[in-house]
Every structure is written in C-alpha cells, then in structure tokens.
Write a protein that binds this DNA or RNA. Structure first.
Length: 278
DNA sequence: CCACGGCCTGATTC
DNA sequence: AGAATCAGGCCGT
C-alpha cells in the first residue's frame, strides 16, 4: 500500500461518478478502476490517497496525472468572475477533470452517443470482460480495455452483441483506423486544440461533441467544450444564449466566454445542472 | 455552413 | 400489459 499526500481538494465520488469515466466502482470504501492497463484500488485517507494496483508498482506520477492533482481549480474559478460557475465549483469542490487514456476515452464517447450512463458502462465493461486481459488485486478480478487490434478483428454483427446498436460500425471503423496506428491519437498530445479537433472528426462516429469530450477528458485540451443536451440547457437557461444557434455556435460562444479553461468549467456546469435541474 | 429525419437499445412511463 | 417516450449525437441528404 502506498500513499500520496494531497495538496488540493479531491472528491472521489463526484470525480469518478460524474459521467466522464465509465468503469470505476466502489466496494467497501474502496474505489476500483483502471489507469491505462493497470487495475487500481484506492481511497482517501486523512489527507492522502492510499492505493495499490495489479502490478504492485509505485504509481504516484500516473495517479497525480490521471486525477489532475497538480492543477489548482480554485484559481481557475476565482479568476473567472462568473457567479453561476462559481456556485457549481463550490458545490462540487474537489471534483477533478480526469486525464484518461485517449484510446479508451475515444471508444467510450463514440458509444455514449444518444445513450445513458448505465448503458454505456455496461457496454464498455462487457467489452473488457470478454476481450480484455485479466488483472487481479488480491481477490478482486478486473479486465483491461481491449486494444484496437482485438476490436478490429471482430465484425459489426458480433460487436452488436455488446448492445452498441448502430454505434457498432463506428466502433469497428475507428478501431480499424487505429489498428497498428495508435499514434494517430497519441500524437494529438502535441497538437493544438484546433488541429487535434480536426483530426478527431475524421473518425467515424465522432462529431463535435464526442471530439470535444475526448479532447478535454483525455488529451489535456482544457479549451475544449463539449455541448451536450445538459450543457446546452445551461447555456440557454443560465447564460441567455439563443436556443436557435447551432451547436457549433453555442460551443464557440462558450469558449469565448469561459476562456482557456472552458473544458474544466464545462464539467462543473454539466454536473451541477444534472444534479439539480432535472 | 445549417436543418432535418433516421437510427439501436433498454429503462421508464402511462 | 404493451406501446410510446426518452437518453452525454452522428450521418447522410
């Protein structure tokens, strides 16, 4: 068991169960999930994260990166001068925007299109269970997310067995593009926002919303701003944005309004709206 | 560029 | 009951 001392607030519940990641679960006070291909178990204890993982390795820098622990969110919202956003921040203080693995993140959000969280989780977990590599922490068994090679060996019909519906061919198409060529997305770490957005839009099943999710939740593009149904409601209801504007225009309005940390602010607004404004 | 209809599926609603 | 409705959108026309 290892420990990491926390320098900023961290709230694991809102971070892991706010719809940005789909595979974490909680059992007897411990949270289980994956960082890249490592199965990991952790909890907050005093002012530390206590963790262990399937490889029995020290994993500190990976956890700090994954949970965005060095980023000072207070500063972001303090400098914003936006009452509504500040309320959302205060309500979910300690929520973090994760830095997930781009490959799993891309497939997850392709699957998320016009769906809901339980169904998305089920598909991704089923894919992993059937096609991933088994990992263990003590007696707890997990499975890594399948590689592009594994997924592209399937056909559309067998992918549909994972409740993917019409998204099956998008998952297959994207997997094929990335098979033996994962750099197509990992290289985007080095691209700017506009260029990585353009690159992501070339994958089947990826439109403006999904691409912006992948950019903010895995590729460290904090300017990205996914506009989904909930965020659209935020913009229209709470910021007076014209409902008739296209999604693209709404996104651009928001990025112009919220600035370089639009993506992080978006996640708080999204979660806040979902919790309180059904 | 923008508007519109179709689309898998499982849970919920009436 | 069994049919409508709804849910983190994308794609083709």
């Amino acid at each position: 068991m290892y420990q990491i001392k926390l320098i900023h607030d961290l709230d694991l519940d809102s971070t892991l169960f706010s719809g940005q990641a789909f595979r974490w679960y909680k059992k007897n006070e411990w949270y289980y999930g994956y960082i890249k291909n490592t199965f990991i178990k952790l909890r907050k204890y005093n002012n530390c994260i206590e963790y262990t993982n399937s490889e029995n390795t020290k994993f500190e820098s990976e956890i700090i990166e994954y949970f965005d622990l060095n980023n000072n969110y207070y500063q972001i919202f303090e400098n914003l001068d936006d009452h509504n956003a500040y309320l959302a921040y205060k309500r979910f203080k300690g929520m973090k925007v994760l830095n997930q693995d781009p490959w799993e993140c891309l497939i997850s959000f392709i699957i998320s299109a016009w769906s809901n969280v339980p169904k998305i989780s089920k598909s991704i977990n089923d894919l992993s269970l059937k096609l991933g590599v088994e990992k263990k922490i003590d007696t707890e068994v997990g499975h890594t997310f399948p590689t592009p090679g594994i997924l592209s060996d399937l056909d559309e019909k067998s992918l549909r067995n994972f409740s993917l519906g019409y998204r099956a061919k998008y998952v297959l198409g994207t997997s094929k593009l990335l098979n033996n060529n994962l750099d197509l997305i990992y290289d985007l770490f080095n691209y700017n926002y506009e260029n990585s957005l353009k690159a992501l839009l070339k994958f089947p099943g990826v439109g403006d919303k999904v691409a912006n999710c992948v950019l903010v939740y895995s590729l460290k593009k904090s300017y990205a701003f996914p506009v989904d149904l909930w965020v659209e409601r935020v913009l229209v209801d709470d910021y007076g944005v014209n409902k008739k504007l296209s999604m693209l225009k709404k996104r651009e309005w928001a990025q112009n309004h919220f600035g370089p940390y639009s993506g992080i602010i978006q996640h708080f607004l999204f979660h806040y709206k979902r919790q309180y404004n059904h």
